[in-house]
Amino acid sequence: MSEMADRYHALNAEVFPWFLPQWQRVLSLFDQNRLPHALLLNGAPGIGKARLAESIAGYVMCHQPVDSKACGHCRSCELLASSGHPDLYYLQPDEAGKAIKVDQVRELTEFMQNTAQQGGYRVVVLEPAEAMNISAANALLKTLEEPGKDTLLILITHQLGQVLPTIKSRCQRLDCAIPSSEQSVPWLMAQLSIEEAEASRLLSVVHGAPLTGLAFKSSGQQALRADLLSSLRDMLRGRKTPIEAAEQFVKTDVEIVLSLVLGVLSDVARMKATDELECIRNGDMEKMIKGVAKNTTPDKIFILMDAIQEELLGLKRRHNPNKQLLLERIFLDWLSLIQP
C-alpha cells in the first residue's frame, strides 16, 4: 500500500491530456449526482491510470472543487497531498507480482464500514484488479453490492480478461486507450527535454506508453538497452561470445534484459511474417533485425520467445536462478538463431 501512497501527486495537478475525455465523463457524472459506486479503469500499463484514479479521488473528496479541479487548500486536499487522508484506502499485493489475498479484502471491508472522518466521500483505489485471487474477489463482491453512501471504489486493471465477470459487472468501466503520438510525443519531449525524434523512438520501444517511456530513460534503462542491443549485434558478428555477454549483464536487472531481448525477437517475428519496416518497434536496429529474420526460421524464433517468457514467469514468482547460466543459455540460443 505504501508504494501507491508514495507516488501520490498534488491533487490540483493537471490530468494527462490523453485522459481528458475520461476525466470529463467522471466530472459530469459527479456533478449530476450519478457517479457510480465503483469504477473500473481499464487499459495498458504505463499510460497513467493510477494518476487518473488519484485525480478522481482528489476531486470527489475535495470540499470545494473549483474549475473542474480539487481546490488544493481545504483540509481534505491538504491531507491527500501529504498521503495521510483517513478516508482514502489503497489496496495492492503485498509484493509485486503476488496475489491480493482475502485477508486484505476483509481489512478493506472494515474500512468501508467506518464513517468518513472528514465528511464526504470515502475512496478505495485497488490495483491491479486482476491480482485478486478467487477468494479475495468473492469477498469484494459484497462490498461492491452494498458499498454504503458516498463511497467510491476505483479498480485499476491492466488485463481486463483476467478480472472475474462478477467483478466487472458491478463496476462502470472506463476504458483508457494508449495515447496517440500527437498527445504523447510532446508530453514526453517536455518531461525529458528531448527532441521529437528521440521521443518518438522511445515511445516506439515502450509500445506507446508515456509513463513507461519516462521511467525507461530516467532509470537508466535506455542506456542498458543500448548496451544490450550492441552486445546482441556483436555476438552475431563473432566479436563477443555468449559467455562474455552474460558476464556483462549478470549484475543488471535480468528481468529487464530478458524483456528487451523478447522485444527484439518480437520484431524479428514480425519482420519474418511481413517484411515491412513499419511493423518493428526497435527501428534503430533495423539492419540486425532484418538480417536475423532472413537467416532464421519461425520455429527457432518462437521456441526462444517461449523460453524467455517461461524464465520471466519464474522470476516474477520469485524463483532464484543462476543469472549467469540463465543469460548464457538465452544468448547461446540467440546466436543459434542464424546457425544451421
Rank of each mutant, 00 (worst) to 15 (best):
H319R: 09
L236G: 06
S204Y: 03
V264A: 07
R170G: 12
L224G: 12
T212G: 10
E54W: 05
S219F: 04
G58F: 10
K142R: 07
D150P: 01
G72F: 00
S55P: 00
E278G: 06
L224I: 15
S336A: 15
K69H: 12
L312C: 04
E146D: 09
T297P: 09
M4I: 09
V206Q: 01
A307T: 14
Y89Q: 07
S336F: 14
N12E: 15
Q221I: 05
L108S: 02
A131W: 11
L335I: 08
R329V: 10
L174W: 01
D67Y: 01
M4F: 12
C71K: 00
Q162R: 14
V254W: 03
Q104C: 09
Q24L: 08
N282I: 01
I47P: 10
G48Y: 03
G97V: 03
S231W: 02
S68M: 08
D333M: 09
N322V: 07
S83L: 01
H319S: 10
N282F: 08
P17M: 10
V124W: 06
L202A: 03
E182M: 12
L108C: 02
S184Q: 07
C171K: 04
L265C: 02
I47M: 09
P242N: 10
K294L: 10
S28P: 03
S169E: 01
L188K: 00
R317I: 04
D234W: 08
F16H: 15
E311F: 01
G148N: 04
I56R: 03
L144W: 04
L153E: 08
M1H: 06
L203C: 06
K323V: 08
R122E: 07
H85I: 02
M305A: 15
H73T: 01
D87V: 00
F302K: 08
L153W: 08
E130Y: 09
H63Y: 02
Q32E: 14
Q92T: 14
I280L: 03
L155C: 03
V26W: 04
S259Q: 07
L258P: 02
L214Y: 12
S68L: 08
L211P: 09
E146T: 04
V26P: 04
L232M: 02
D234A: 15
L258G: 02
A273Y: 14
T212K: 15
M61C: 04
V254Q: 06
A269P: 00
L41N: 05
